[in-house]
């Protein structure tokens, strides 16, 4: 699946799994590889992902900060597959998922087995101290559920990731995903129905419920950014730092959108 040197590549991905094949967080490499097949197909043939600068991702602990869009979190999956197949060395990233994910049947189990963790600061701190690569979407649901008209306009960034980066002295790699923002154009959000269903948003798209269209993905990795300071700085100070990361992501998005010829190829 990952070419001839697959076993070698995978050796580096093994974590401290117990006799039941899972690590303490519930990650299972076997499950992940089995679950990956459809995503690999999407990666290669559906979204035809192209990566730029993936070699900039440093070894050891790192926070990958990306824009978030497209109604369905395909961008997370594609970044994860990119690092698994093209990362040098291959890395199994952990994404910080929304707190309501563990309340969803099947989704919750799937997420845990492929190494995705609920986005609490404690979880993130613990994983960074274990030298893991953590994928965060500081826009959160605000980004995921934005409307088509707002494409490539970054929503407000949360400050939490910066606090953690300062506290654990973790470099930040900004990521710009171009292509996800058009995959499932939301025309409007039906907030009242979403509220009744207990989900964070319910978009209306040309396909009715969101279904990702075969847009071409371009994933841009930026230079690692390191910040100095303490974790209990004023929000104002933190905001400046967060803003610099946000500007970098926005810059990569703008350049990427300008460069490409078409949404679908």
């Amino acid at each position: 699946m990952l070419g001839p040197s697959r076993d070698e590549k995978l050796a580096g991905l093994r974590r401290n799994e117990n006799e039941f094949g899972v690590d303490p967080f519930g990650f299972s490499l076997e499950y992940t590889l089995a679950a990956m097949a459809p995503f690999l197909w999407l990666y290669k043939h559906y979204h035809r992902v192209q990566t730029f600068g993936i070699e900039k991702v440093p070894q050891g602990r790192v926070l990958l900060v990306s824009n978030h869009s497209g109604q369905l979190p395909m961008d997370a999956a594609m970044i994860a597959v990119a690092l698994l197949t093209e990362g040098r060395p291959a890395r199994a990233v952990r994404a910080m998922v929304e707190k309501w994910v563990p309340s969803l049947p099947y989704v919750s189990t799937f997420m845990a087995r492929v190494g995705q963790i609920v986005g609490t600061p404690e979880n993130c701190r613990r994983l960074l101290e274990n030298e893991e690569a953590i994928l965060v979407f500081p826009e959160g649901v605000r980004g995921l559920g934005k409307l088509y008209a707002q494409r490539y306009q970054l929503q407000a960034f949360g400050l939490g990731f910066m606090r953690l980066a300062l506290e654990t002295k973790t470099p930040i790699v900004p990521i710009g995903v171009v292509g996800a923002e058009e995959q499932s154009p939301a025309l409007m959000q039906v907030r009242s129905v979403a509220k009744v269903l207990g989900i964070p948003y319910l978009p209306v798209t040309p396909t009715g419920v969101p279904f990702p269209l075969p847009t071409k993905y371009r994933i841009y990795f930026g230079e690692p950014m390191t910040f100095t300071g303490t974790a209990d700085e004023d929000d104002q100070e933190l905001e400046k730092k967060v803003q610099s990361v946000r500007d970098r992501v926005q810059g990569m998005l703008d350049a990427g959108v300008k460069e490409r010829q078409h949404v679908f190829w």
Partner: peptide
């Protein structure tokens, strides 16, 4: 709880 951290201290 669904929003528990994986390991509570």
């Amino acid at each position: 709880s669904p929003d528990n951290s994986n390991f509570l201290t």
